[in-house]
């Protein structure tokens, strides 16, 4: 791994990796550790392996997912609350009461997303937050294109129904 490659391809996606790790682990500290370990592992990639990697982002996402799942399984950490570190925002035009209500709704949506089954949660995260293509999601998670579409459809449908019923 050369410095240029690391600096141009890997380092810029560190926030994406962090958000993805945070989605899986649910812990800021765990997610930071995961990103640190992934970046270190990528930096130490053997020169002969570097040539075989076509999509660095997808490969890094795969490493992040695997490392995050390892941590989650070993510590059985699962969070059902909105992600840590997310700033609450309110509209300038809304009254305090409306802003509070809106924030409650936003937090409920975040909670719904976090409570989705693992595959749906990760597919929705990579598509709706990281804006990856279906192919990149399939490569990152090691699943087929059809599975990506099905899980995305189920995830969005689940949240929409919960929002309507709430």
């Amino acid at each position: 791994m050369t410095w240029d490659l690391f600096h141009n391809q890997v380092f810029p996606i560190r926030h994406k990796l962090y958000r993805f790790a945070l989605r899986i682990t649910g812990s800021v500290h765990e997610a930071e550790d995961v990103v640190q370990e992934v970046l270190e592992k990528v930096w130490k990639t053997a020169p002969e392996q570097v040539g075989n990697i076509q999509n660095w982002e997808a490969w890094c996402m795969t490493l992040t997912r695997n490392r995050s799942l390892d941590k989650t399984r070993s510590q059985t950490l699962r969070r059902a609350a909105p992600l840590e570190g997310v700033a609450e925002r309110s509209s300038d035009t809304a009254t305090p009461a409306q802003a509070t209500e809106r924030n409650d709704l936003v937090n409920r949506v975040k909670m719904m997303m976090q409570q989705l089954p693992e595959k749906q949660r990760l597919v929705m995260h990579l598509r709706d937050i990281e804006e990856l293509s279906y192919d990149e999601i399939a490569e990152s998670l090691g699943i087929s294109l059809d599975q990506v579409k099905v899980n995305l459809h189920r995830a969005r449908k689940s949240i929409r129904e919960k929002m309507i019923n709430d």
């Binding site: 992600l83 997310v86 925002r89 949240i159």
Partner: peptide, 13 residues
């Protein structure tokens, strides 16, 4: 709120 939640999640760094 769905899209506001996505926007806020995208801002996490």
């Amino acid at each position: 709120p769905m899209f506001q939640a996505l926007r806020e999640e995208q801002a996490v760094q």
